[in-house]
Measured scan of single mutants.
Amino acid sequence: GRPPQPKSVEDLLDRINLKEHMPTFLFNGYEDLDTFKLLEEEDLDELNIRDPEHRAVLLTAVELLQEYDSN
Score class of each variant (00 low, 15 high):
17 N>W: 00
21 H>L: 15
65 L>E: 03
10 E>V: 08
21 H>T: 05
35 T>W: 00
2 R>K: 10
15 R>N: 12
15 R>H: 09
9 V>K: 04
68 Y>P: 13
37 K>I: 02
56 A>G: 09
68 Y>C: 14
68 Y>N: 14
9 V>C: 01
65 L>K: 02
2 R>C: 00
68 Y>D: 14
32 D>Q: 08
25 F>D: 05
15 R>L: 10
30 Y>D: 04
64 L>Y: 12
14 D>S: 11
58 L>K: 06
17 N>A: 09
13 L>M: 04
18 L>C: 06
12 L>A: 02
40 E>F: 00
1 G>Q: 14
30 Y>H: 04
44 L>A: 03
35 T>D: 14
64 L>N: 15
20 E>P: 06
35 T>Y: 06
29 G>A: 02
49 I>E: 03
10 E>C: 07
28 N>Y: 10
50 R>D: 12
54 H>M: 07
14 D>I: 09
17 N>F: 04
51 D>A: 05
27 F>I: 14
58 L>H: 06
16 I>E: 06
52 P>K: 10
61 A>W: 09
13 L>I: 00
43 D>N: 12
60 T>Y: 08
65 L>Y: 00
44 L>P: 03
3 P>R: 09
36 F>D: 04
37 K>Q: 07
28 N>C: 06
50 R>G: 09
47 L>E: 03
19 K>S: 14
31 E>V: 13
40 E>H: 11
23 P>Y: 10
49 I>D: 04
34 D>V: 04
22 M>C: 11
38 L>H: 13
42 E>H: 13
21 H>Q: 04
28 N>W: 06
69 D>R: 06
59 L>D: 06
40 E>S: 15
33 L>F: 04
7 K>R: 10
43 D>S: 09
1 G>T: 13
41 E>I: 06
56 A>F: 05
31 E>C: 13
51 D>I: 06
6 P>R: 01
21 H>E: 04
66 Q>R: 15
51 D>K: 08
17 N>S: 10
2 R>Y: 09
61 A>P: 04
62 V>Y: 02
17 N>E: 09
25 F>Y: 01
52 P>R: 07
41 E>S: 09
37 K>S: 09
59 L>R: 09
10 E>Y: 08
67 E>C: 09
17 N>K: 09
49 I>L: 01
69 D>Y: 05
66 Q>A: 09
32 D>L: 03
53 E>L: 07
40 E>K: 15
58 L>Y: 01
38 L>G: 12
60 T>R: 15
49 I>K: 02
63 E>V: 02
65 L>R: 02
34 D>F: 01
30 Y>S: 04
14 D>L: 09
6 P>Y: 14
24 T>Y: 00
18 L>D: 00
52 P>Y: 00
15 R>W: 08
7 K>A: 12
7 K>C: 06
58 L>R: 05
59 L>K: 10
37 K>W: 00
47 L>S: 02
8 S>Y: 01
58 L>I: 14
7 K>T: 14
42 E>D: 12
31 E>T: 15
52 P>E: 09
36 F>K: 00
35 T>V: 07
63 E>A: 13
41 E>G: 07
63 E>S: 13
71 N>T: 13
56 A>Y: 05
46 E>Q: 05
54 H>A: 11
57 V>I: 12
28 N>S: 08
55 R>C: 01
44 L>D: 02
60 T>E: 15
19 K>M: 12
6 P>F: 14
14 D>V: 10
11 D>K: 03
52 P>W: 03
34 D>R: 07
48 N>S: 08
60 T>V: 04
9 V>R: 00
48 N>H: 12
40 E>I: 08
28 N>M: 04
48 N>M: 07
37 K>M: 11
19 K>C: 08
62 V>C: 10
19 K>V: 09
13 L>C: 00
47 L>D: 02
42 E>Y: 06
44 L>F: 08
67 E>S: 13
57 V>L: 15
58 L>Q: 07
26 L>G: 04
38 L>W: 09
53 E>T: 10
1 G>E: 14
69 D>N: 09
37 K>R: 10
33 L>Y: 00
40 E>A: 14
71 N>P: 13
10 E>I: 08
57 V>R: 15
43 D>Q: 11
41 E>P: 12
10 E>S: 08
60 T>D: 15
36 F>G: 05
69 D>P: 12
